[in-house]
């Protein structure tokens, strides 16, 4: 019974907790997409997250990222880890406070069953997809693209081909400005896609 594992997860969808507890999820970037996706994955029962980000928390992050004023100045990986452990003390976290590159990405996430892309720049999203697919053709990558502006909820979608899954509207840019409501929807579309894939893959 899932309920025997941890009372946090007694309202989970039956049959999913054991699978998620045995899953390893990589998150490349701990900003608006990565931090919010990580929170939902921890609540869902993900057993192990690998978090990578080189930045520290700034006040301007608080309009959309899963941090608080007391986090300002801390490395994002450490601040996020603290929040995730306050939800589920049993979660296993591997933290990498590094700038990800095509050279270090494969090793950083070598244990991950799938990767959530949460970079800011579209150019970085592109090399991440190419690098991940070259190294791990059988493991999914879930990318956020098109999270800018306000409203337009109906334009947000999951667009998939093979092991590549793109969440967002694929057009709106951070140059339009960013709002927690819209960014969090896409972050949760990424988390939801990850959970769906993992429960299909391992179930």
């Amino acid at each position: 019974m899932d309920q025997d594992i941890n009372p946090i997860f007694e309202r989970n969808v039956p049959g999913t907790t054991v699978i998620l507890q045995g899953s390893v999820i990589g998150i490349a970037g701990c900003g608006g997409l990565g931090s919010n996706a990580a929170i939902s994955l921890a609540r869902a029962g993900a057993g192990k997250l690998i978090l990578a980000d080189c930045d520290t928390v700034e006040l301007s992050n608080l309009n959309r990222q899963a941090y608080f004023r007391t986090d300002v100045g801390k490395p994002k990986t450490e601040a996020l880890a603290e929040h995730l452990r306050s939800i589920n003390p049993g979660i296993e976290l591997i933290l990498h406070q590094v700038e990800l590159t095509p050279d270090n990405l494969p090793e950083t996430f070598s244990d991950a069953d799938l990767l959530i892309e949460a970079f800011d720049r579209a150019e970085s999203k592109k090399w991440l997809i190419q690098t991940w697919c070259a190294e791990n053709p059988d493991r999914p990558v879930i990318v956020g693209s098109g999270i800018g502006g306000l409203g337009k909820t109906g334009e947000l979608k999951v667009h998939s081909s093979g092991n590549i899954h793109i969440c967002g509207d694929e057009w709106s840019s951070s140059e339009e400005g960013l709002c927690a409501a819209r960014v969090s929807i896409v972050a949760n579309m990424q988390a939801n896609t990850a959970i769906s894939l993992l429960t299909e893959l391992k179930g």
Binding site: G29, G146, I147, D169, S172, S173, S174
Partner: peptide, 27 residues
């Protein structure tokens, strides 16, 4: 996945299913 440097040479077969993803800034 077809990488950029393969675009000129990668031949598409009749009946192929092609996907073009757009990547936009923001994370």
């Amino acid at each position: 996945l077809v990488n950029d440097n393969e675009y000129d040479d990668f031949q598409i077969e009749d009946g192929a299913d092609v996907t073009v993803f757009h990547l936009a800034h923001g994370g």
